[in-house]
Design a protein around this nucleic acid. Structure first.
Lengths: 123, 123, 123, 123
DNA sequence: GTGGTCTAGACCACC
DNA sequence: GTGGTCTAGACCACA
């Protein structure tokens, strides 16, 4: 996996795992790979993975069973979706709208844009 | 002015000044406020403002007349708009679309959203 | 049974068994359930229970008859009570008092609290 | 400062700082010592202090001004008190009551105890 | 100067 | 085996 430099590696891995859960690759109740295994998979230090798991645990996405490992929480997909949604609406969308305004993009422009992107995706 | 922690303060001030130029508050040819004044307006260290001016100068948005100060470049508004536009389309929009997909937001949802935001703004 | 994360699981199970003894559910001389049975009751690894029994044996609360199993010691209730009492007074009470002081809780507050809790319990 | 082994060092330092704030030694608005300074004061690694500050920031007790340092939040004392109070009532008191019951201590005993401790303190 | 991230490696308690 | 803590030291962006 390639990491971009703008966000912390631990964050990017957390996002990656969240998306795996959303896609069903890691269903609720399933055991998450151990920090050691995942650290070597991503070729990062164990401490970095430890931090990743710790923030995922704090969000209630994974649960620690002591001495055994981490497991995907039962309602993990819903929690992830809810968290991302609220972050999007509260933090990203306002800035986006402001930017569109500055760029003098009308809603019509944006809608055209959306359609265009949609078409490309369906090809 | 409130600064958000995701971007550097020097960047946020640069954006702020760019926007002032776009809005016509700082027309081309006009002298930009001195580092001193702006530093106290933003309650920021002078070094931070020096960096702000230095990146604005690098982009050709402001021009240094030695011993006098900085002045808004003649074609500054166009340059800012072009720069932001290309950045938006190349860097921000793709991530946005991906996020919308993850959040299972359809284009229809997004359009509704745009209309809603537009109405609020016009109140 | 739910385990809290602050203490080791083996400890919590040991406490649990001690309390069963104090309550008379496991009278002196009685055979303690086998590691197997208790492990499945608590849904815990057998090794964890082995450790539990080993510390209980070390404290003299249960006694191992080789090839047969563990039995509650004759004076087990008294030993447990004495051990917990001294631990409480020496280790827990001082910290508690300090905390109450920090929280600006007066003795009167604490007494009120005790009465309140007592009433709830008697309902 | 001596550290006990039962709690993490980072936590004990966090508690220490919280208490300094409660005592008024670190009034709201005041700058908290830099991680480097405090790390050498406590003779621990900088990373440990970093973690301490990070949990204090998460609780809203201190605030990070980028490139400058951490500052005590305006309402820090209230937040600390509230946090400790709720933790005490929800996590510590129930266990305490259970223990008192097991130890067959009546409320009268506890009250006597409180008075005794109080006298010792006032000597 | 400030905090923030990452690595490498050690040691620990627990299951 | 698992996660959790701490240290030492490097590198970074920011003010």
């Amino acid at each position: 996996m390639e990491f971009q430099s703008t966000k912390g590696i631990f964050q990017q891995i957390a996002d990656n795992i969240s998306h795996r859960i959303l896609e069903g690759k890691l269903p609720p109740g399933e055991r998450v790979p151990s920090v050691r295994d995942l650290a070597s998979e991503f070729e990062v230090n164990r401490n970095t993975l430890l931090r990743t798991y710790s923030i995922l645990e704090e969000s209630g996405i994974i649960i620690n069973k002591r001495g055994i490992g981490f497991f995907v929480a039962e309602n993990a997909p819903e929690m992830i979706l809810a968290a991302e949604k609220s972050f999007f609406f509260e933090n990203e969308l306002p800035g986006l709208m402001q930017k569109a305004k500055i760029l003098k993009l009308t809603n019509a422009d944006l809608i055209d844009l959306l359609n265009l992107l949609n078409e490309n995706e369906n090809k």
